[in-house]
Computed example of a mutant assay.
Amino acid sequence: ASILEQREGELIRFRWHRDHDQHACFEFVIHHSELTGGKSLEIIDYITPDEAEDTEHFWNNLIGRLRLSLGVPE
């Protein structure tokens, strides 16, 4: 994937090399809560409706692996 945009500690946006649609990208956004001091990760994937089911499984698998490696319960 190629980086399209990056803001240190806030956002990174990518486009897959194999994707010919210039508007198809995905991004990770880190949200900071001033109230709790916590952070959350938002993943946004710009896809077509026919890709929704496969893409959901793809990200759920990756998030599950991330949680496991961090020791975070589901």
Rank of each mutant, 00 (worst) to 15 (best):
A1W: 04
A1E: 06
S2W: 07
S2E: 08
S2K: 13
S2M: 10
I3C: 11
L4Q: 11
L4G: 12
R7S: 11
R7P: 02
E8P: 12
E8F: 11
G9P: 10
G9M: 03
E10Q: 13
F14E: 05
R15P: 00
W16T: 02
H17G: 03
R18N: 11
D19Y: 01
H20W: 10
Q22F: 05
Q22H: 06
H23N: 08
H23D: 05
F26H: 05
F26R: 01
F26K: 00
V29S: 00
V29W: 00
I30E: 08
I30R: 11
H32Q: 09
S33E: 10
T36V: 05
G38E: 15
S40H: 04
L41H: 07
E42D: 12
E42Y: 10
I43E: 04
I43W: 03
I43D: 05
I44R: 05
D45T: 01
D45G: 01
Y46Q: 03
I47G: 00
I47K: 02
P49S: 13
P49L: 07
D50C: 07
E51Q: 14
A52T: 15
A52Q: 15
T55S: 15
E56L: 10
E56A: 11
E56V: 06
E56N: 05
H57W: 07
H57Y: 13
H57G: 14
W59C: 07
N60G: 04
N60W: 08
N60F: 06
N61S: 07
I63M: 04
G64H: 05
R65E: 14
L66A: 12
L66G: 05
L68T: 12
L68V: 11
S69T: 14
S69H: 11
L70E: 11
G71L: 03
G71H: 06
V72Y: 10
V72C: 13
V72N: 12
P73N: 10
P73H: 08
P73Y: 09
